[in-house]
Write a protein that binds this DNA or RNA. Structure first.
Lengths: 330, 330
DNA sequence: ATGAAAGCGCTAACAA
DNA sequence: TTGTTAGCGCTTTCAT
């Protein structure tokens, strides 16, 4: 089924059209206007180029113009709701600008992160977005050495503009919702709000792969121990992440339903199925699209100040999972 | 913070090391052996190249060798568990071979699919994997015109080797599990097994974006109508996809728990949270990694026969969601 | 054991 | 309004 063994070049098109190579070169884009080439010539060239299936080779053009037409993005992994949403948005914004995005997963390992950034740099990407960086300073150093503009998303760095979700705000809103749902007096130990699955240390350590993998189990132990100590499920439980929430469910779903009746459960991350429990679950959906929109705004503006940009998250009220499609992160 | 304005070239390194450009060119790889360059010279060049932060520009090398070092993959969208797993695997296999993967989402639209394939071709990708193709024949035509090897995954095409999940086998296994759980006599209409959320037509039409988005709602209507007609939840419900399952839950979770006690529910797709319901759920997890492994086997073997390769799916028994980490797709 | 030189396909001055 | 020319940075014969 294969056909042509060698692709046509502008010289072939030049020969076929009777024009010169440079005229052919100018035809596809808009530069023929400045070069004052007649529209007729351009049309003629375009049509025979189309017939021959010619299109400028990215390598040659890139070599000449010192730009590859590629833009890079680093994410911890594809196989994750949040980062996949970011990929999807980055794709859309990039294509919209006529650029081809190269998205590479770092696997949450600083070493791998550096290994991933290097080929992106030698690919001559125009700029780079780094999401969930484990070693932002190292990445910044590499980018700066190559004079490459970059932004950080989700996890901040000091070497380039960072866009982060407003986690404090999100958690605060969530807490307020929980309190509205079930006024908490704090009269007894059980009548309080507890936070499960990571604290301040999470930023630096628990985001690493191994800890990440173990998060469900450890959250399950954590919540089981808490309930055991208190003699029942506390009035409010706020779970840090979906992974932890999964573990939390491991304990909570084994309990008789009436044990949960007077408790409110919340999670700082969102998943439509996770939201669908026999008890109400308050969730916060991170705005991955907004994060990337903001990142692209920085890129478009050519900003490079390291001021933190916050993007607000969205409150998800309990049991609304069927109001929106599973894949609808719009 | 930016530093060097222009990247060092082999000529710079040549000048600095006292060697010639061609010698510098041979140093990084293995070709210096055939060229009988002394190991000492190579080491010297390598060290000063490293010091200068030099690495061969992909554009120039690609132009010269007519290969870009890129490999392409087309997926319907990033923001989906199944396809994200495929991306993740494709990444790993590609990097393992020293190639940079470019993964582009087609949004399940044939027109977009063609728009996406074109830049990949002009990027001179070495080969291409197309997952969930909506118009495989058009893609094959484009690839063949560019003499580009390619394989299809998930959805087959006739123009290149296809790797597909063994859906029939998966559904059959699932059905057997359901029947084991709750022997179905078929004595009454309710005492039967029903299939929700798509039939044979799904392959061609319902996979389209619009239908995809509407799937939860339509599945919810479908199952509600069924239960209404039968006067209750049937003995067995097999749901086609996660999106449909989400809609199904919209109905089922509103029912009193005892209404579901004598029914078995199954889904042809898998999600750890979806599996965590107040009633047992049988699920099938597609082997995205296996699909890509097989696709890469085809690429490595340079095969191009259009014989269907099947990859088996994995049975997920009810309520095991906390046995594995959320992100652990092994 | 190494250097010189000729391009890969394209674009942008500079001519005409 | 268009053609000619000189490279972009690298690899690869072919000559030393």
């Amino acid at each position: 089924m294969p056909r042509a063994s060698r692709k046509a070049t502008i010289h072939d098109i030049a020969r076929l059209s009777g024009a010169s190579a440079s005229t052919v070169s100018a035809a596809p884009g808009e530069s023929w206007r400045e070069r004052r080439i007649s529209e007729a010539t351009v049309e003629a060239i375009r049509s025979i180029a189309a017939a021959e299936g010619h299109s400028a080779t990215v390598q040659a053009r890139g070599l000449r113009k010192a730009r590859s037409g590629l833009v890079g993005m680093v994410i911890p992994l594809h196989d994750n709701r949040f980062f996949a949403s970011m990929s999807q948005s980055f794709e859309a914004f990039s294509r919209q600008r006529g650029l081809v995005p190269v998205i590479a997963p770092s696997m949450r390992a600083p070493q791998e992160e550096r290994r991933i950034v290097e080929p992106l740099i030698t690919c001559a990407v125009g700029y780079m977005a780094i999401a969930g960086a484990t070693d932002p300073d190292a990445v910044s150093a590499m980018c700066n050495a190559a004079n490459l503009r970059h932004v950080f998303a989700d996890l901040p760095g000091r070497g380039a503009p960072p866009v982060v979700p407003d986690n404090n705000r999100g958690a605060a809103d969530l807490t307020r919702c929980l309190l509205t749902d079930r006024p908490i007096t704090g009269a007894t130990c059980r009548d309080r709000l507890y936070f499960i699955g990571g604290g301040p240390a999470d930023y630096a350590s628990a985001r690493r792969t191994e800890a990440f993998r173990d998060a469900p189990r450890s959250a399950m132990r954590e919540i089981a121990a808490l309930c055991d100590r208190l003699g029942g499920v506390p009035a409010g439980v706020l779970v840090n992440s979906l992974t932890a929430f999964e573990g939390g469910l491991g304990h909570l779903s084994g309990l008789p339903p009436e044990d949960l009746r007077s408790s409110v459960i919340g999670c700082c991350d969102h998943d439509p199925f996770a939201a669908c429990q026999p008890f109400p679950v308050h969730m916060v959906r991170q705005d991955a699209h907004g994060l990337i929109r903001e990142a692209y705004r920085i890129i478009d503006q050519n900003a490079n100040d390291p001021v933190l940009r916050m993007v607000e998250a969205e409150q998800i009220v309990p049991r609304t999972f069927h109001d929106r499609a599973f894949s609808d992160h719009g």
